[in-house]
Amino acid sequence: MAGSLVSIDGVSKTYGEHGPLVLNNVSFNIAKGEVISILGKSGCGKSTLLNCIGGFEAMNEGQVLLDGKPITKPSKRCVMLMQNYGLLPWRSVRKNVELGLESAGLPKQEAEERVTHYLQMVGLTDRATSLPSELSGGMQQRVAIARALAIQPEVILMDEPFGALDTFTRYYLQDELMQIQQREKMTIILVTHDIDEALYLSDRIFIMKPNPGEIHKEVSLKLAKPRDRSDSDFQHYRELIFNEFQFTQEKATIEFNI
């Protein structure tokens, strides 16, 4: 599709030769600067889909196009944020953020300026020399966000990035992420099982259902950002999605009743 940055085109995947179908003919397009959520229960294949988009896993059929070119392996253009942050514990905060820039061939001064800039953006300038183990979970994820932003990728993939955090830190980081996204206009693909998180952050939500993993429904959110979690429109969309899950759950109970 013209004008889209990422095109997911008929992606199917099975594990092993005759394994179960994990992804079945998944197709959608993402425009530049869009925030997309893939929402679903555990085991619906949403993380697998994200891994395929990032080039971390191969698919059996279909392709993922970034700017019209197929993704075959992980690259700096498409950075993944992990749930366990993936910080290198032996490097200071600053050295962690610098990691992706070291082989980029940037002049030293420019690299340092960039690190400083993004550390400031996530509000961790004063913790630059700390080790990750000395930071809270929320701070660690902010370091990971700064590290991803520092290499200025076109797409950021997030696999339940705030899943391990407590509710307050999660809300706080969601706010922060949204502000950064508004400023930097990066494209984000977010995998989550948190309905509120998807509603708060995304422009569009894709609801996935399992066995086989398929896009069940697409919801476009026509709400201005920043959003109010208690707003009535917000609640309206919440209910809409909630109903969708009731539906998929009913179907699932038959299969999972053992």
């Binding site: 971390f56 992980p74 690259s75 700096k76 366990n84 990691l99 992706g100 082989s103």
Partner: peptide, 21 residues
């Protein structure tokens, strides 16, 4: 494996991956 994924994501060479990760 997370560290190795990061190395791949940041397009590190084999030698870099050995040395830095």
């Amino acid at each position: 494996k997370t560290y190795l994924r990061i190395a791949a994501n940041f397009e590190m060479s084999q030698v870099e991956t050995l040395w830095k990760i």
